[in-house]
Design a protein around this nucleic acid. Structure first.
Lengths: 192, 192
DNA sequence: ATGACCATGTAATCCGTTACATGATTCG
DNA sequence: CGAATCATGTAACGGATTACATGGTCAT
């Protein structure tokens, strides 16, 4: 399972299940996410397997927390996962499937509106990523000189920016082709 | 569930479970896939729900097949899914998570080799997509004039090409940054 | 006191994969 | 006759989501 390794990786510093969830909500979510109801049982299982150990600690605000730390065995397991090279999981894009089927949903105008809507959704997400990047660069604009961990995180953020931007370009390419096709249809109608 | 709608969409023409699996293996797989052991029960459930109906038909070669057709109710269900606008499913990229954690796996050279390997894997997939696109364009190089269904399929293929290409560009950007950082580290060592 | 947030968990269900099981047809 | 391909399914398991359940602390 991947979540095991993701959590092991995130536990570079001690954290509770709640903390880890927060992290998913913030940065890490560009590439992974999980619900608390999956995180808690996974953490207890990893502890049972000796990859983590936990201790109860008072919270600054709120009830007591259970804070997890990696064991040596846990760190080794993580390193082995990383040594295995890139894990290429299957990708599923429901909206691309929808696009493939849209030729049955009416005329080209439906497809056009679909792509316009998709572009706006992607744009909103890109805006968020770009603000994140700008904030990160504000303190020091040369990531090459940042600490190792932050440098690596920045490369991950770049993946988000690059890939969403490419998808927006794709939307625009599609819209151009759709408009060309719409003109062609109109012309044919006029010729009648 | 999305697979329900994907199958409904793929059943524009009558097909058996086996046929649908073949289709996943070929074109549709750029955005979705499923195992036979998931397809068969799903089809029987969709029939129970009145979205499909099936009939046994002799095969040109091999044993009898169970061929499914959409019912009116099935077509309506599909259209409703499409009318709901783009479905933005969660994306999970294990390899981006790995990259984020790689700063613990030794020196920068490990990250560099990871990215080189990733780039080669993406390149191989891009090659496949580009061959597919070339074949499609061979007969008629202007998709704007293709039949509706093929035009839509082509837009989907473009999504694959565009987004994989962008990821390769990202890999190269990362490698450039990594090399810059490696030079910086060397210089620091030399200064000692 | 009540609502927002901190904090941890369980239960039911669903989605998806891997493994298992069976048998017909066709080609060499 | 044996291997490849066509064809359909079931069973067991694991991964992930949704819903349920509980209770502490803090600010207004």
């Amino acid at each position: 399972m991947s979540l095991d390794h993701i959590l092991l990786g995130m536990l570079r510093r001690p954290a509770s299940g709640y903390d880890l969830k927060q992290e998913f909500e913030q940065g890490v979510r560009h590439f992974w996410s999980a619900e608390l109801s999956q995180i808690y049982p996974t953490l207890t299982r990893l502890e049972r397997q000796g990859l983590l150990k936990s201790s109860r600690e008072p919270s600054a605000q709120g009830p007591e927390r259970r804070v997890y730390r990696r064991t040596d065995k846990g760190r080794k397991e993580l390193l082995q996962w990383l040594r295995g090279g890139p894990v290429m999981g299957k990708q599923r894009f429901a909206y691309v499937a929808q696009l493939a089927f849209l030729h049955e949903a009416g005329d080209l105008q439906a497809t056009r509106e679909f792509m316009e809507r998709l572009r706006e959704e992607l744009r909103a997400y890109l805006d968020f990523l770009e603000v994140t990047e700008k904030d990160a660069l504000a303190a020091n604009p040369r990531p090459e000189s940042w600490p190792e961990a932050e440098f690596h995180e920045y490369l991950c953020l770049r993946m988000g920016v690059t890939s969403i931007r490419a998808r927006i370009v794709w939307c625009e390419e599609c819209l151009t082709r759709i408009r060309a096709r719409q003109r062609k249809v109109k012309k044919r109608e006029a010729a009648k």
